[in-house]
Write a protein that binds this DNA or RNA. Structure first.
Lengths: 325, 325
DNA sequence: TTGTAGGCGTTATCAA
DNA sequence: TTGATAACGCCTACAA
């Protein structure tokens, strides 16, 4: 690989001049500029980013922490983050954390050693404490970490209320909820939204809230149990779409017809919802948009000296499909 | 951030000694070693990886190119690559290429500037030419790039033959094929495997091969058309599972019962196949394993001076589910 | 067993 | 308008 010195020698100038040409700063005569450009071309020279990073203390890299990229909710978000970071000439580093604290700390350290410029973090295990020694900007995505850390989220509680209202509006009279993990704050908000709508109903019982784990299998098992013990249930608001698919599967296996005997609505708006049969009605998040927003927010913070805390809340939207129609 | 000099000063030794302690090489007295370690602890010192990279010309980073991480086939592969690279203390960089040549070249350049240590590439648009100037090891994954570049793949043609044989064995007598894009070599192999089994059948016609694009929508539309024009078709071998889901959807919409009227088998073994109704029979690739193997192969090549070309072919396995039972 | 010093490739400051 | 040079933080001959 050619270095700046090779270019300088070939163009018969100093490295300083080459640097000026590359970075478009400082004065440089048109003639010499051309000589330098020719030399760069001829040698196929590309500046060494590592040396640059060392000098500047910044690497033009951004990291995204997600619990697990094989969970279909995250790829689209990751995609958005990558697209935006690329557009701003950043390199994108993806980290699967499994929500494991030790793993997250390892990543934080390893990436700081590489002078990463900022972090976008989806985590329900990380707290402000773990992050207090981080010197670069951080944006919490999908799940709030602390009031002092910028965040991009959706109206989980309001959206959930809307989901339950919708089930009522299409005639459901006994509505249950398959909930996400209680240590994930958006799962708690979604359950609260459900409770807002049903808590005062005379038919409501705690039995109608079943814990799922935001995954397919647990939700299917939970739904089978629910439907067998509570045959009066005619609507289910499910904490996320992956679990919604599990519920639809359970309905088939216990012989309940969807949507005739049972209406099901999920949350998230992942693509799978459109590929299953019946297709799944859902409160759709603008997944790509929130990922993109987080990336833009982070880059803004990186480029500004005084990084103010910003919080952005997006709105989810009802998407009606076969599971309720 | 503390530097090696701060540590040296605090421990009252030279930076060379600190370096020796950190890297466990060269002799260093037990007493001074302890002093150094204490100083490191006290200052919370972590070596600057950028400086290291500059000196060594290597960054301990590995990049994975995939067409699009939102395609559910890739996350599990990416996950495997990340797990293995982490285990070897490499940092993982994910790149979505959309199979766009310009984008891939941009990534190659950007990452070379960062002294990336190696590439794992899933691409059907890249050729040997594009890669000839790359100085670090490369492993082609899922799709072969050239005989001179190491690869990890599966027995696409053999697996496809097996799929068609299976359909025959359960009684199908008119078997069609929804094919992947013709510029993707594994899609071509899969079609060839299909042809191997049906080409000589008296009932076979070219009409039974319909082009899909490895995605849901195109496959659904293709299947609707096929089933409407060729009602005699009683079995479909689909080029991948995502298209398989589309075919199942199409079957419902044209009123064909699966598996009674129509048997469907896919290829890949992605998780979606188990969540849809009916569940999808498939020729399952060991997706995680091939990703992990590619990563191990690449790391081996990075660590060896004489990088021999290696080719590994995994075997796909029939997974019977409701779409054929 | 330890220290000195040069260099990895850039950038930015200061002179010229 | 250009050049010489000192960093950035680390590692490794070579000396001591």
């Amino acid at each position: 690989m050619a270095t700046i010195r090779d270019v300088a020698k070939l163009a018969k100038v100093s490295t300083a001049t080459v640097s000026r040409v590359i970075n478009r700063n400082g004065y440089v005569n048109e003639g010499t500029k051309k000589r330098v450009k020719d030399a760069i071309e001829q040698l196929n020279y590309l500046p060494n980013d590592v040396a640059r990073s060392l000098f500047k203390g910044r690497s033009k890299m951004i990291a995204l922490f997600v619990p697990d990229i094989t969970n279909p909710f995250f790829p689209e978000m990751a995609r958005a983050v990558e697209d935006v970071t690329n557009r701003h000439d950043y390199t994108f580093v993806l980290c699967n954390t499994d929500n494991d604290i030790a793993k997250q700390i390892d990543y934080l350290n390893a990436l700081q050693q590489k002078s990463v410029d900022g972090f976008i973090i989806v985590s329900s295990s990380m707290t402000e404490e773990h992050l207090q020694h981080i010197q670069v900007p951080i944006v919490a995505l999908d799940r709030i970490i602390s009031p002092d850390i910028s965040s991009v989220t959706v109206n989980n509680r309001g959206g959930s209320r809307q989901a339950v209202q919708y089930l009522k509006s299409i005639g459901c009279t006994r509505i249950a909820h398959i909930a996400g993990p209680e240590h994930v704050n958006n799962a708690v908000y979604r359950m609260q939204g459900y409770l807002d709508e049903v808590n005062n109903a005379d038919w409501f019982t705690e039995d109608y809230i079943i814990p799922g784990k935001y995954n397919f299998d647990a939700a299917r098992d939970a739904a089978v149990k629910l439907l067998n013990t509570h045959s009066e249930v005619d609507g289910i608001f499910v904490g996320n779409d992956l679990m919604g698919a599990g519920v639809l599967n359970a309905a088939v296996s216990v012989g309940r017809k969807v949507p005739d005997d049972l209406a099901v609505i999920g949350f998230d708006g992942i693509a799978i919802g459109e590929t299953i049969t019946p297709t799944l009605t859902t409160m759709a998040q603008p997944i790509y948009d929130i990922g993109a927003k987080a990336a833009e927010m982070l880059i803004k913070q990186i480029n500004s000296q005084e990084p103010a805390v910003m919080n952005e809340e997006f709105t989810v939207q009802l998407v009606e499909r076969q599971s309720t129609l």
